[in-house]
Design a protein around this nucleic acid. Structure first.
Lengths: 336, 336
DNA sequence: GATCCTCCCTAAAACGATTTAATAGCCCCA
DNA sequence: TGGGGCTATTAAATCGTTTTAGGGAGGATC
């Protein structure tokens, strides 16, 4: 039932009904009797305003778009939870699109969402190169692009936490698994690790660095990378993995090679995904406040939408946290 | 830039522009010269039709709503991936809402989505009791509700696969972890297990049945349930868990109790989530084709939308698959 | 020169709301 | 009796499209 029909039924004009139902200041001019008649009828017919019509008129959709690489990788899902909670609380909803790292989709999805008249965009671990006609928040984006606000982890601190922990346990020969080239955090995190290593006086040997390759969100990639590290033959007593998932894969590779974790090799993950706490051994990891990052992104986006184009910071920083569990331990004394 | 402005710029009527751009049959009546002029201008100004206006006019939004309990639980995310792939391919987008099992949200979200003019709804592992004015697909729904089509697993077969595998390995004392009361599959799966046990002549002892309690999507719940089973003191050599996540928690509990998996206890999971293959030990599990279930749900929904109200089946069944990995093995001979 | 095509295009009415300026009725007062 | 000031309501424009019925121009036909 439309507002017009409701008005006809009541023998008043659509304007009257609209004024009353929206309870705008101008509605004080409507007599109390009419007001109540309208409200009663609306209730009786369960009138619900048509959202599309209203959006058209008001030029507001109360919708934002979210672009993620992959829904089922733990990382995006957690950020998304934070985004969702904040958005729904504020009366917004969101459209999701996951591009699975396909470059044509990474280009097309922002355009598609904007065509759907979203009021803003949140890109999670997804590069956004081109300025867009709506405010954009990039979670884990690091490039300075006009109109884009980046929500980033304090990676310098993250590097310190990870390496500080290992160095404190006596490790000196530390291997690394870098993220995939397409992951927004890869470069920044790698730089942070290198610089932390420098500060701790730990050498970073080329033979002790592997990189994740491929797009699957499974531990397989970490497994493959760890096997490469083992194959390289250069001894190490600890590994810092790009994320928890790859850490889990690496642990499996170590185990198959007869190495115990943490007795022979300590492993530090990253993210603190659900899986981390309940893996065997439970993962020591650098926690990213992913849920909070999602909330922060959404909150900032709504603020930018409300403020109109213009004012925005380019960086919002959140702090990592070291979570010590079972996958790290003292460096073995019989270093070979 | 709107169609109207474009028309003014070209000195033609909006109707002409619309006809040409939509390339409708009636556009053949527009002279080739005009047609090309319009197309060129549209390209030049990068004209994009306003989706909201078009939706209002056509009374179509090409959007559907998806309701899930939780985004970050592996299960929903996989189903969602399937849903997304099919929807986007067909030019649809979707709005997500996750209710985290809160009853008021389970009631409100369908209404909210319908108010947003979605053309249909997919409920994943979420009860939908009331008939709604749009077609609804329920993934893992089992109740027969008018207007709701259920996409379900062949649970009878799933029970056979799980118990058949264990019985084949010599297990007779088998423990179970049932799902939470709120999970749509809990009852059906439990019935399937009981009936399979009956067919295999395996007794189902009350002391060997625990139930997941709580809403966290972490393995914690399985851990707690397994500890209850251990505390009950009744011996068992195998466990069938409600899902992979709880199986992982259970394995941790067994390990803490000094039991080896699979040497002392075999564990069968359910779902075949990403975590299953890379857990240590890798999980033997009953695979649900979650991605395909999502696709199937979306495909069916679009078909129902196209067909208009009326015709729909109430059940669509998919088949489970036994995936044998490391968490199951021969029953220990020294049964106590 | 009236009639009838054909060809090309447009006016106008939707879709369902919101909002602004205007109006109709009424009372009061000079 | 005319105007001023209320109060209660509404007409009409608007948002940006789509679609249908129809109109005008020009040439062919009778």
């Amino acid at each position: 039932m439309s507002l017009k029909e409701l008005a006809r039924h009541l023998n008043v004009s659509p304007a009257t009904v609209s004024l009353v139902l929206n309870n705008v200041p101008a509605a004080r001019a409507i007599s109390k009797a009419t007001r109540e008649r309208v409200l009663a009828a609306a209730r009786h017919f369960q009138y619900r305003p048509n959202f599309v019509a209203r959006s058209l008129r008001a030029q507001r959709t109360y919708a934002v778009g979210v672009i993620v690489p992959e829904l089922s990788d733990g990382y995006s899902a957690l950020v998304l939870s934070g985004i969702e909670d904040l958005l729904l609380r504020e009366g917004y909803m969101y459209l999701v699109a996951s591009h699975r790292h396909r470059p044509n989709l990474i280009d097309r999805y922002p355009a598609m969402l904007i065509e759907r008249c979203v009021e803003g965009l949140i890109a999670v671990d997804t590069p956004c190169e081109h300025p867009l006609p709506v405010p954009v928040i990039s979670v884990s984006g690091h490039r300075r692009v006009p109109g884009v606000t980046n929500v980033v982890l304090n990676h310098r601190r993250a590097g310190e936490l990870a390496l500080g922990h290992l160095v404190g346990l006596g490790h000196r020969r530390i291997a690394f698994i870098k993220g995939q080239a397409f992951s927004s955090d890869t470069e920044v995190r790698w730089e942070a690790m290198r610089s932390a290593a420098r500060r701790f006086g730990i050498p970073v040997q080329p033979g002790l660095v592997a990189q994740l390759e491929g797009e699957s969100p499974s531990p397989e990639l970490g497994y493959v990378a760890a096997r490469k590290l083992l194959a390289a033959g250069q001894p190490f007593t600890a590994l810092v993995a790009f994320n928890d998932i790859s850490a889990i894969g690496a642990i499996r590779a170590f185990r198959e090679a007869g190495l115990r974790v943490p007795e022979d090799v300590s492993v530090v993950g990253f993210d603190d995904a659900y899986a981390a706490a309940f893996h065997i051994p439970a993962l020591t990891t650098i926690r990213q406040p992913l849920y909070r990052m999602g909330m922060l992104a959404a909150e900032t986006l709504l603020r930018l939408i409300a403020a109109g184009p213009g004012a925005q910071r380019s960086y919002i920083k959140v702090e990592p946290e070291l979570v010590i569990r079972e996958s790290t331990g003292p460096a073995p004394s019989d270093q070979t």
